[in-house]
Amino acid sequence: MGGEHMQIGEVAARTELSLRTIRHYEETGLVMPSARSQGGFRLYTEGDVARLMVIRRMKPLGFTLDEMRDLLTATDRLDSGEDLSAADRRQLVDRVRHFAQLTQQRVIDLRTQLARAEEFAATLAERLPGPAAS
């Protein structure tokens, strides 16, 4: 992907991730800057931002760094234009499908947790005395 390069501060603002978090994802190999400036600053593309958004969306669903890496590797290979055998393509699609299923289950689980939390909050609110009469 070509186009404009962004420095890490702009990427952080666009992804709502901290500089520290973006650097951590770089250290773990989840995302790499597409280039470096002459001064050594990290430079990122829209593709790098999209990759960070995938990571950001996976994190609250409890996916591990290894699981994130696994999904990103599968999607990278599928999107690369690489000449894949039918068996390799099927395996990669199955991998992505597996993550889609895990994601759906985790969303259901989170909705259940949210409903329970809302019920609890309502129960507590009911127990509070009304406004004091003056």
Rank of each mutant, 00 (worst) to 15 (best):
A115M: 00
D88W: 05
I55P: 10
I55H: 15
Q113D: 07
R14P: 01
T45Y: 15
L78V: 06
E119S: 05
D66W: 05
R36H: 09
T73G: 07
I22L: 10
H24M: 12
L78E: 04
P131E: 15
R69W: 04
T123D: 02
D66R: 14
K59M: 11
Q104G: 09
A125P: 08
G40Y: 14
R89Y: 05
V31W: 07
E4D: 06
G3L: 07
Q38D: 09
I55Q: 15
Q91D: 12
A115R: 00
A133I: 08
E82N: 01
A122D: 03
G2R: 10
F120L: 03
M58V: 06
Q113I: 02
A122F: 02
M68Q: 05
Q7P: 01
G130E: 12
R56Y: 11
A133E: 09
M58Y: 11
I8D: 08
I108E: 10
F63E: 14
Y44A: 11
M32P: 03
T75D: 04
G9R: 11
M58C: 15
D83E: 03
S18G: 13
E26T: 11
M53I: 11
R77N: 02
V54C: 15
M58K: 11
L128Q: 13
S18E: 04
R69N: 09
D48A: 15
A132Q: 10
T123W: 02
S85H: 03
R95C: 13
H5S: 12
Y25D: 05
I8Y: 06
Q104H: 13
P129K: 09
A117V: 00
P131V: 05
E119N: 06
A117Y: 00
R20K: 14
L114N: 01
V49D: 10
I8N: 07
V11M: 06
R57H: 15
L19I: 09
D79H: 08
T123I: 02
A35T: 07
L19K: 14
F120W: 02
K59P: 01
V49S: 15
A125F: 14
L72R: 04
Q7H: 06
A35K: 13
S34W: 09
R89W: 05
T15E: 03
R90L: 10
L84K: 03
A121T: 00
A121N: 00
R77W: 04
Q38K: 14
A87K: 03
R56L: 12
L52R: 12
E82Y: 06
F63N: 06
R77G: 01
L30N: 06
H5V: 08
R106Q: 02
E46Y: 12
S134F: 07
I55S: 13
E46H: 15
Q38F: 11
P131C: 12
A87E: 04
L110E: 00
T45P: 08
A87N: 02
R106G: 00
A117K: 00
L65C: 05
T123E: 03
G47M: 13
R42D: 08
R111M: 01
G62F: 02
A115F: 00
L17T: 03
D79P: 01
A12C: 06
F63Y: 10
R111C: 01
L43K: 08
M1Y: 11
R57D: 14
L65F: 11
L71Q: 04
G81L: 07
E16K: 13
Q105M: 09
I22M: 11
T64N: 04
T21S: 14
L52Y: 15
I8T: 05
T112V: 04
K59E: 09
S34T: 06
M68A: 08
P129N: 13
R56I: 10
Y25I: 08
K59A: 13
E10C: 06
